[in-house]
Amino acid sequence: MMDKKDERMFVFKTSVRFFRNVKDVPFVSRFSPDDAEDINRNVKSVCDGEWGEDKYDTLNINKAEKCDILYWCDENCCNVRTGGTEYERMAFTNSAKGTSIVTNESEHILVQSIKDGCDIDSAYKNACETMNALSRRIPFAASEKYGFLTAVPFCAGTAMKAGALVHLPALAMTNGLGKLTERLAGEGANLKPFFGERDVSFGAFYQITNIFTLGITEDETVNYIKTAVDMAIEAEDECRSELVSTKEREIYNIVWRSLGVLAVARRLDLKEFMTHVSNIRMGAELGIIDIDADFADELFLYGQNGYVDRYSVRFSLENEIADDVRARIMRENVAPVLRKMI
């Protein structure tokens, strides 16, 4: 059995999400701006009571700058629409707990709790605390047959998605993901690229989530994901050992090259950036280079579109193209580290 620190090498984040709609209020595609405001008011008062008035941040998604919304999304591993809508959409974020509530996205209410590394129990516990506080005040739409009712019918029932964001570079390099995908399906879990398109991942980050939300309990869901994550870790670990023992020189070369590119490149698009940051994270995990996974994870956040846009605004670099700004941010962070190592 691996300890927590080792799991951290494979699991980037774990999350638990609950989707809820308010009873007797039409879903988001059919409700009125007044309904939306009511929901926001109720959620806000729950936040005030439960978290304390000054203990959380409020983001008005409908009015905020696009780069601030994207940055919030990157930090919270979550997607929200950036365009304006006729109704108000909010994000209430309690960073200390890693819990946030998003209103009027595809469902009236999304509660999400995220933890670094592999800690689904804490994510589940934190999400439940907030869910319980909300349900004491807000009646939710539910039926006997379909459980909690969601506008997107794919998650009716528990209306719960538990997941882990895992880093599987060795399996990705060796075409080992198809087999893992099949095995996870047998455990009721889905494996899909977290960044990228279709089955092509930028940087070998994959999301594991539960397939089933009906005929299953919340506890079972958590256990399914735990089993699935263990399976993925085991497969990746085996694959990495194999790679290091058979292709040591190649792997060292890939890792050091990527570090070099991040330290000196003048232009980096998101896809190329993700590939290099993935390689150096793997290098850190395998002990090839002496940096810790946290540093790699920081770089990872700094290279996302939201952070890059924000950086451009802050340092008045708006006339530089984003890929150049991304390269600039990487040089600032990586070059000093590299200088110490060579």
């Binding site: 879903f27 997107v152 019918p153």
Partner: peptide
């Protein structure tokens, strides 16, 4: 909510849509 619209967006309009 019409079925046409649902088929396009995969979003239901209210509890009774189920």
């Amino acid at each position: 909510m019409t079925y046409k619209e649902f088929a396009k967006t995969f979003m239901l309009g209210c509890e009774d849509c189920y």
